[in-house]
Amino acid sequence: MGPLTIRKETMWSDLPEHLMERILECLPVDCFFRFRAVCKTWNTLFSSQHFNSIARNSHPFLILCPSDTQLPSLIYSFITNTWLTISLSFIPHDYPINFRGSASGLLLADINANFLFGYNSPTLCVCNPLTQTYSMLPEMVSVSRITAKTILPAGNKMEEYTVMVVGMSSTGTVLIEAYNSTSKAWKVAGTFPDVVLRSENMLFFKGYLLGMIASGGIMAYNIEQGIISIMAMPTAEANNSRARLVCCKRGVFVVRAIEENHCLKGVIVW
């Protein structure tokens, strides 16, 4: 019997898909874009819902987005302790765009064309920076002027999410309205307390809506019970307009980028 000959060109193609997923899921997020360009099979695997579900749960990352999507965004990998640039120019728009929240690898953005034409609320968009895909949300049912907004996962699949907005209705009532990606519809989730939010940055965590308020501190509002409480913030961040709330599985964080001459010098996480 002669020596065993292994044809390298067929080794990967002969592997079952689930084994390829187990191998590739070990890669840090900054390697995903390189292996995506290897072949059509890997690119298809990269876009599968199962692989994305594994990747987003196994490899947390921080993304910093500029308002001009023609400029590169930055992704920080906690696994390799490195920064990666990524383009968000795949989102179609002719007007300014702002990123208002993130959940499980998805970004919530608003496109401000409506403001230029005298309307109150922007067009909302949910995008996936890793797969370079996006979805425009329909108009809301009751809220006509948005005050704050956030996005949160609504299931085990990446395409399942909920977008929640706080805003004024046509009757002057401040409402909470939620969009479900499965039903593809908006629904009023409750009313909002009489507090002034400092920015449009808002989170939903363990049954509470969280937002930084103008008088300082972080508001936690239980929608079902209608109970509100105020938590203190670090003195340095209490009145910093550039600080943002960020949510992950372990808890809620206040994040602020440190800039010098319009260049990123560091990130503070509290």
Rank of each mutant, 00 (worst) to 15 (best):
P3C: 14
P3K: 14
I6P: 10
I6C: 15
S13L: 09
D14K: 14
H18A: 07
E21I: 08
I23N: 03
E25D: 12
C26W: 11
P28W: 04
F32Q: 13
F33S: 10
K40H: 11
L45G: 08
F46V: 11
F46L: 13
Q49T: 15
H50I: 12
F51S: 00
F61I: 02
L62G: 06
L62V: 04
I63G: 01
I63P: 00
C65L: 09
S67T: 14
L71M: 10
Y76G: 01
Y76A: 02
Y76T: 02
S77E: 03
N81Y: 08
N81Q: 10
T82K: 14
L84F: 08
L88E: 10
F90M: 11
P92A: 12
D94G: 15
D94I: 12
Y95D: 15
S102Q: 06
S104I: 02
G105P: 03
L108G: 00
D110T: 04
D110L: 00
F115V: 02
F115A: 07
G118C: 03
G118R: 02
G118P: 02
N120C: 13
S121A: 15
P122S: 13
P122Y: 06
P122T: 05
V126T: 06
V126R: 03
C127W: 01
N128T: 07
T131D: 02
T133V: 05
Y134A: 03
L137I: 01
P138G: 00
M140C: 03
M140E: 00
M140P: 00
V141L: 09
I146D: 02
A148C: 11
A148M: 08
A148Y: 08
I151R: 04
G155D: 10
G155V: 03
N156M: 11
V165I: 12
G167R: 06
M168L: 14
S169L: 09
S169D: 12
S170C: 05
S170T: 09
G172E: 04
G172C: 04
G172V: 05
V174M: 11
E177R: 08
E177N: 10
N180C: 06
S181M: 04
S183A: 12
S183W: 05
A185M: 13
K187H: 07
D194R: 10
L197W: 06
R198N: 07
S199R: 06
N201K: 04
F205V: 01
K206L: 07
K206W: 05
K206P: 03
G207M: 00
G207F: 01
G207P: 00
L209N: 00
G217V: 01
I218E: 01
M219Q: 01
E224P: 00
E224N: 07
G226I: 04
I228S: 14
M231F: 15
M231T: 12
A232E: 15
M233T: 05
M233K: 03
M233I: 02
A236W: 04
A236D: 11
E237R: 09
A238T: 13
S241V: 08
R250S: 15
F253R: 07
V254W: 02
V255G: 01
R256L: 05
E259L: 09
